[in-house]
Design a protein around this nucleic acid. Structure first.
Length: 721
DNA sequence: AGCACGCCGACT
DNA sequence: GTCGGCGTGCTC
C-alpha cells in the first residue's frame, strides 16, 4: 500500500468529512493517527483539519482526492473521548463535526504556520525557573488576569511532558495550603463529591456566602490526593459565567493550591497565552483549568471533576454560531468519563431543579452562611407609587445611601440598562430616536455626545433640535447607568462614585481596575449593570439598591421571571458577605417597585428560592413549557420580512410530522429588524427529546434544498424565544 | 464559511 | 473603456 486515506473534519458548513491521500513513507515515519491535526488544501486555500479516521479506502473516485500537506506531529493527538464529545455536540446541535471541533482550538493551532506553536512548545519545555518570572511579571502587569503557570516539575520532567502525549507523573505530592474548617453541610457535600464512583451530577444549592467555593476546592483537593496515589495527576475543570470573575477565582485557587499549574481559558486571553494554556491542559500539566463556557471544549486527558459555578447563568449558553450550552455539555462530558459534575447555584435553573425533583441530579444543600455571624441581608420593597423617585431614586433609597456613606460603608445601585437614556424624544411633535436600520431605539450616550444603536453600529451626534419639527427642546426619556451616575454626583458631591458597565469597561483591564478600586475601599457608591451582580465578593458593601426591576415582571418571555429572580438574589448576595460588625448596620437590599406585593418579590424577601421554583415549575407544566417540553427554534433572515416568513412556511410544509412533534406558525422575531435585515422564526416542540432530535435530523437535509436559498439557522434548546 | 466566477452600473 | 456590486456554485 502506497497511500492511505485520511478522513478529516474541516471548519466548513458542509456536513461531511473530507478524504485526503497520505503518502506512506518508510517505517521510521509513523502513520498519521486520529486526533492529529493536518494541513490540507481545500478549494483554493490551505486549512487545518482534524484527522478523524485513517482508512485504506475512500468512496470518492481517486481523481477527486488531493494530498494532505502535513500532519502536526509536534502536538499529541486529541483523544478519542474529546472527539466523541465534539461529535455529540455536533449531532445534538445539528452542526458539522468540524464546526464544533476546530473553532474551539487556539487560533495558533489552526494556522498553517507553526511559528507560534513552536514558540509555545518551547515555552512549556523551558525550565520552570526561567519561564515563571516572565509569566508572573506579565500577570502582575495585567492585574493578575494573565497566565500563571506554576510548574512543580523539574526541568527534565517539563521536557518529558512536552515530548510525550501522556503527562509525566508528579514527583512531589500534591500540596494544598491549610484550609478553613467546613461546617457539617459543607463537609458532607465535599465527602459526597469526592467519594463518587462513576458519573453523578450534583446540584450544590446554597445562598451566596454559604461556602460553595470552599466545597468545590476541597472536593478538588481530595480528588487530587486520591488520584495521586493511583496514577497520573487529576485535572479539575471549573467553569465560571464571566471573564471578569476569573481574576478573583484565580487568586482563590492559587492561594489554595500554590503548587499546582493552573490554566485559564477564556476569550480575553491573547492568542499566545491561549495557546500556552490550552497546551498545558492538553498535556495534562495544568491540573486546574479555570474558564468560561468555551473551556468546556478543552482537551483534558485526566479530567476527574467538573464544576459549573452559577450554573443557572444565561452566559453558559453561546448565543451565536454553535449555540451550545456549556452546562449541558459539562453534564454529558462527566457522564462520558464516569466522573462527578457539580452544578452550583443559589438560584438553580428550573431545568436543573426539575432534575433534582425527578431524582436525576443529587441535591447537596448548604443552608447556613459559612462565615460565622454573617446574616442574610434584609430585603425591603420601596413602593414607587407612594415614594415617587427623582432622578431614578426614591427618597427612602437616597436616605439609605446617605446613611451608609456616613458609616463609611459601600453601596451598590443596580440598573440593568447602560447608556444615559434609552430613548430621546421630541415632546412637541412626538419624534423618537428610532434607529434607521433596526427595530430599536437609539440610546443616548451623553459623554460621547452620541445617539447609538445597541444592535448595529449606527451612531449619530445628538441632534440639537428635532429632526422633524425643529423644536430645540429634545428630552431624554428613561434612564440608564450614566444618567443615574450624574444624579448621584449631584446628590452626593463628596462621594466617590464608580460606574461599571459595558461602556465603562470597554478597554482591556479597565474592568479589573474598577473592581480593584472597589475592593480597596476607594469607592463609596457603585452603580452598574449585571456586570456587578455576578459573583464579586465585596467585603465592605452593605447596601444594595435595585432601581427598576419591574419591566421583567410582565414580559412575554416566560423565562423572564426566572432570570429576574436569579439576578435579584445574586445582586442581593453582594451585600453582607462578611460578618456583620457589632456596631454596624445590618446589610440591606432595597428594591424600588410599583408592585411591592408581587409574589416574586415576596419569595425574594423570604429568600425562598424553593417556593418560587415550585410555583414556576407548576406553571410550566400547565402551560406545556420547558423543562417539560423540548424545543428547537429555526430563524430565517432576509431583506424582506415576507421572504423570511415564506421560507419558514415552506420549511414547515416540507416534511410530514411525526405525532409527537409540533411546528408553530412562523412569526416575526421580537426584534424584527437588525442592521436592515428582517428576521422571522419558527418554533418546533416535542414532549420527547428523542422524537425532536430524530425529526430535526431528517428535516435538515430537506431544508437545505428549499429555494430561494436564504440565510437560516437552527437552535436546539433556545433560551430566548 | 470562503473564494472565485460572472454579468451589469458610475468613474479614473 | 475599467473597478466593483453581490447572485450562485464549489470545496475531498
Amino acid at each position: 500500500m502506497e497511500h492511505c486515506i485520511l478522513k478529516i473534519a474541516l471548519d466548513s458548513p458542509l456536513d461531511s468529512l473530507f478524504d485526503y491521500q497520505w503518502k506512506l513513507q518508510d517505517e521510521t515515519v509513523p502513520l498519521p493517527r486520529p486526533g492529529q491535526l493536518a494541513i490540507v488544501p481545500f478549494g483554493r486555500r490551505e486549512v487545518v483539519g482534524i484527522i478523524v479516521a485513517v482508512s485504506d479506502h475512500s468512496d470518492l473516485p481517486a481523481e477527486k482526492l488531493r494530498e494532505a500537506l502535513a500532519v502536526h506531529v509536534q502536538v499529541p493527538p486529541l483523544s478519542r473521548e474529546w472527539l466523541d464529545l465534539c461529535r455529540f455536540a455536533a449531532d445534538y446541535y445539528h452542526r458539522p463535526l468540524g464546526e464544533v471541533a476546530i473553532p474551539g482550538l487556539p487560533k495558533n493551532l489552526r494556522t498553517t504556520k507553526t511559528t507560534a506553536l513552536d514558540k509555545a512548545l518551547a515555552k512549556l519545555a523551558r525550565p520552570a525557573d526561567v519561564a515563571l518570572p516572565r509569566l508572573r511579571k506579565a500577570a502582575r502587569a495585567r492585574g493578575r488576569n494573565a497566565a500563571i503557570t506554576t510548574p512543580v516539575e523539574s526541568p527534565a520532567q517539563a521536557e518529558a511532558a512536552v515530548e510525550v502525549a501522556e503527562p509525566a507523573a508528579l514527583a512531589s505530592p500534591v500540596f494544598w495550603s491549610a484550609t478553613p474548617n467546613l461546617n457539617a453541610a459543607q463537609e458532607q457535600a465535599v465527602a459526597s463529591i469526592a467519594e463518587t464512583m462513576g458519573f453523578t451530577p450534583y446540584l450544590l444549592f446554597g445562598v451566596t456566602g454559604s461556602g460553595k467555593t470552599e466545597v468545590y476546592l476541597q472536593a478538588a483537593a481530595r480528588i487530587f490526593a486520591q488520584a495521586h496515589s493511583e496514577g497520573p495527576p487529576a485535572q479539575v475543570l471549573i467553569l465560571v459565567p464571566e471573564i471578569n470573575l476569573t481574576p478573583q477565582w484565580l487568586a482563590n485557587v492559587q492561594a489554595r493550591f500554590p503548587h499546582l499549574t493552573i490554566a485559564l481559558l477564556h476569550s480575553g486571553l491573547a492568542e499566545g497565552e491561549r495557546l500556552t494554556h490550552w497546551l498545558a491542559a492538553h498535556y495534562g500539566r495544568a491540573q486546574i483549568v479555570l474558564g468560561t463556557r468555551l473551556a468546556i471544549l478543552a482537551s483534558l486527558p485526566n479530567l476527574k471533576l467538573i464544576v459549573v459555578d452559577e450554573e443557572h447563568d444565561p452566559s453558559y449558553k453561546q448565543q451565536e454560531g454553535l449555540r451550545y450550552s456549556a452546562r449541558d455539555l459539562a453534564v454529558w462530558r462527566a457522564h462520558q468519563l464516569g466522573i462527578p459534575v457539580v452544578l452550583g447555584s443559589a438560584t438553580p435553573s428550573l431545568e436543573s431543579w426539575q432534575h433534582v425533583q425527578s431524582g436525576r441530579y443529587k441535591k447537596l444543600e448548604l443552608r447556613e452562611r459559612a462565615v460565622p455571624d454573617a446574616v442574610l441581608p434584609k430585603v425591603r420593597m420601596i413602593d414607587m407609587e407612594r415614594d415617587r423617585p427623582t432622578g431614578g431614586m426614591t427618597s427612602s433609597l437616597i436616605k439609605a445611601v446617605r446613611l451608609r456613606l456616613e458609616c463609611g460603608e459601600q453601596s451598590l445601585l443596580f440598573l440593568n440598562r447602560r447608556g444615559y437614556a434609552p430613548v430621546m424624544a421630541c415632546e412637541a411633535c412626538g419624534w423618537i430616536s428610532n434607529c434607521a436600520h433596526c427595530s430599536a431605539f437609539m440610546v443616548l450616550h451623553k459623554l460621547d455626545r452620541k445617539l447609538r444603536c445597541h444592535h448595529c453600529s449606527n451612531e449619530m451626534r445628538i441632534p440639537r433640535n428635532c429632526p422633524t419639527c425643529g423644536n430645540i427642546d429634545l428630552q431624554p426619556i428613561g434612564r440608564g447607568t450614566q444618567r443615574v451616575e450624574e444624579s448621584l454626583q449631584q446628590l452626593f458631591p463628596a462621594a466617590r462614585i464608580q460606574r461599571i458597565d459595558a461602556d465603562s469597561t470597554r478597554l482591556k483591564g479597565s474592568a479589573q481596575a474598577a473592581f480593584d478600586a472597589v475592593h480597596r475601599g476607594e469607592v463609596d457608591i457603585l452603580i452598574g449593570t449585571q456586570m456587578v451582580a455576578k459573583g464579586h465578593d465585596f467585603q465592605n458593601l452593605t447596601l444594595v439598591g435595585v432601581l427598576n426591576p419591574d419591566t421583567a415582571l410582565f414580559s412575554q418571555d416566560y423565562r423572564a421571571a426566572e432570570r429576574l429572580f436569579a439576578q435579584l438574589m445574586q445582586v442581593a448576595g453582594r451585600a453582607g458577605r462578611r460578618a456583620q460588625k457589632e456596631d454596624g448596620n445590618p446589610s440591606e437590599v432595597w428594591i424600588q417597585t410599583r408592585y411591592p406585593q408581587h409574589p416574586l418579590y415576596a419569595a425574594l424577601r423570604a429568600h425562598d428560592y424553593e417556593r418560587f421554583a415550585d410555583v414556576q415549575l407548576q406553571d410550566r407544566v400547565q402551560a406545556g413549557l420547558p423543562p417539560f417540553i423540548y424545543q428547537a427554534l429555526m430563524r430565517a433572515e432576509a431583506r424582506e420580512l415576507q421572504t423570511a416568513l415564506e421560507f419558514l412556511e415552506a420549511a414547515r410544509s416540507s416534511m410530514d410530522l411525526p405525532p409527537e412533534v409540533i411546528l408553530h406558525d412562523p412569526i416575526p422575531m421580537a426584534m424584527t429588524r437588525v442592521a436592515n435585515v428582517e428576521r422571522a422564526q419558527l418554533l418546533i416542540e416535542s414532549t420527547s427529546r428523542v422524537a425532536l432530535q430524530a425529526y430535526l435530523t431528517a428535516w435538515l437535509p430537506v431544508l437545505r434544498e428549499i429555494k430561494p436559498r436564504i440565510k437560516w439557522s437552527l437552535e436546539v434548546d433556545p433560551q430566548d424565544i
